[in-house]
Amino acid sequence: MSALPGLRAGALTAGRRSRARSSQKPVGGVTASLLLWGYAAVALVPLLLMVASSFRSNADLISDPLGAPWPLSVASYKEAWTVGNFATYFANSLLVTCGAVALSTVVATMAAYALARGRSRIFRWLEALFLSGLMLPIHLAILPIFYLFDGMGLIDSRLGLVLMYGASGVPFSIFVLTTFFRQLPVELEEAAQLDGASTWQTFVRIMVPLVRPAVATVAVFRFVPIWNDFLFPLVLLRREEKYTLPVGLTTFFGENATNYSAVFAGLVITTVPLILLFLLATKQIVAGLTAGMTK
């Protein structure tokens, strides 16, 4: 009984210390926040100018480049979408990008699960083989890929782009997903096996939902470079009706170098899907990047 007052005093002291630590603010917190907000404002200025200029006529842009977009005009969007063939470019980019991301994500998720749970030494060798693909930039292999596709009849084929982009994204996806699968306790699979679930059912119904933030992060990080890639569509595609947005935008800019309003509209059409993707997937990206950092 005599030890209770000492314990209570110690608990009160520890409580005061914890409250003091929680009330402390990180050094430079306000300054860092101001710097980040300032950087965000500066980074948004070109984007806002691009959007504002796309709603103005070309004559207004020439006479007053920094004027307000009033009255609003969507004529430049109609011209870019129809005359500039951006509807076809947009559909091609969506088909190639979504197909490649889906292919690489599905293959990498299954491979990462097998590598994370495999106990044989051969799985370590296979993992090292996959990760070695991170050391070679895919653009350095443009000539071998071109000759390979030429022999396979995949030149001027959107399917060829899907296969190439999907294969190039597998090493990075495996690198991320293998780490997440290894953080999951093996007891989950043992409990599923006791309940009569097969390996495939355990993988699809239990393991994949648990690594969903990581899968979303991998998908987003693969979507952006594929959507913005210019070199491979330029080299591997021949006909304009199969061009993706970066190549189509370059062609449109060359034909409308002085039609600034239509060019800005084309830039907005190319940029908006990426902005929407990050706005919709921000929570999943943050959860995927920070998973496992706290216990």
Results as ranks from 00 to 15, higher is better:
residue 206 I to Q: 01
residue 92 N to Q: 08
residue 272 V to A: 13
residue 184 L to Q: 14
residue 212 R to S: 11
residue 11 A to Y: 06
residue 30 V to R: 14
residue 192 A to H: 00
residue 6 G to R: 15
residue 194 L to V: 14
residue 58 N to I: 07
residue 110 M to E: 06
residue 2 S to Q: 11
residue 29 G to S: 15
residue 282 T to I: 08
residue 8 R to P: 00
residue 44 L to G: 04
residue 35 L to D: 04
residue 104 S to T: 12
residue 202 T to N: 11
residue 99 G to Y: 04
residue 75 A to H: 07
residue 88 T to F: 12
residue 104 S to I: 03
residue 131 L to M: 10
residue 141 A to P: 00
residue 292 G to D: 09
residue 279 L to H: 03
residue 222 R to W: 01
residue 235 V to I: 15
residue 229 D to M: 07
residue 132 S to K: 08
residue 134 L to W: 02
residue 187 E to Y: 03
residue 161 L to A: 04
residue 34 L to A: 11
residue 214 A to W: 01
residue 156 D to T: 10
residue 179 T to A: 15
residue 108 A to M: 03
residue 77 Y to I: 07
residue 48 L to H: 03
residue 21 R to Q: 13
residue 91 A to N: 07
residue 279 L to S: 09
residue 18 S to I: 13
residue 164 M to Q: 14
residue 8 R to D: 10
residue 35 L to N: 04
residue 186 V to K: 15
residue 30 V to M: 07
residue 99 G to K: 07
residue 40 A to Y: 05
residue 36 L to T: 10
residue 61 L to D: 00
residue 51 V to A: 12
residue 157 S to V: 07
residue 186 V to F: 12
residue 178 T to H: 02
residue 98 C to A: 15
residue 113 Y to M: 04
residue 235 V to L: 13
residue 169 G to Y: 04
residue 24 Q to A: 15
residue 289 L to H: 01
residue 144 P to R: 13
residue 31 T to D: 07
residue 86 F to N: 05
residue 122 I to H: 10
residue 159 L to H: 02
residue 289 L to F: 01
residue 214 A to Q: 08
residue 55 F to Y: 10
residue 87 A to D: 15
residue 64 D to G: 02
residue 163 L to Y: 06
residue 231 L to G: 03
residue 131 L to H: 01
residue 141 A to W: 00
residue 264 F to R: 07
residue 246 P to A: 08
residue 131 L to R: 10
residue 288 G to F: 06
residue 209 P to C: 09
residue 85 N to E: 13
residue 248 G to E: 06
residue 10 G to R: 15
residue 24 Q to P: 01
residue 57 S to W: 03
residue 44 L to H: 03
residue 149 F to N: 12
residue 114 A to D: 06
residue 134 L to P: 00
residue 96 V to A: 04
residue 158 R to I: 06
residue 118 G to V: 08
residue 225 P to W: 09
residue 183 Q to E: 15
residue 240 E to Y: 02
residue 192 A to M: 01
residue 210 L to Y: 06
residue 233 P to C: 06
residue 188 L to V: 14
residue 239 R to Q: 13
residue 237 L to W: 04
residue 98 C to R: 00
residue 46 P to D: 10
residue 41 A to F: 10
residue 254 G to F: 02
residue 290 T to N: 05
residue 222 R to M: 05
residue 67 G to S: 11
residue 137 P to I: 10
residue 232 F to M: 13
residue 186 V to Y: 11
residue 150 D to H: 12
residue 172 F to C: 05
residue 40 A to E: 01
residue 148 L to C: 05
residue 10 G to N: 09
residue 195 D to Y: 00
residue 242 K to P: 00
residue 203 F to W: 11
residue 250 T to Y: 14
residue 67 G to H: 11
residue 167 A to R: 06
residue 213 P to R: 13
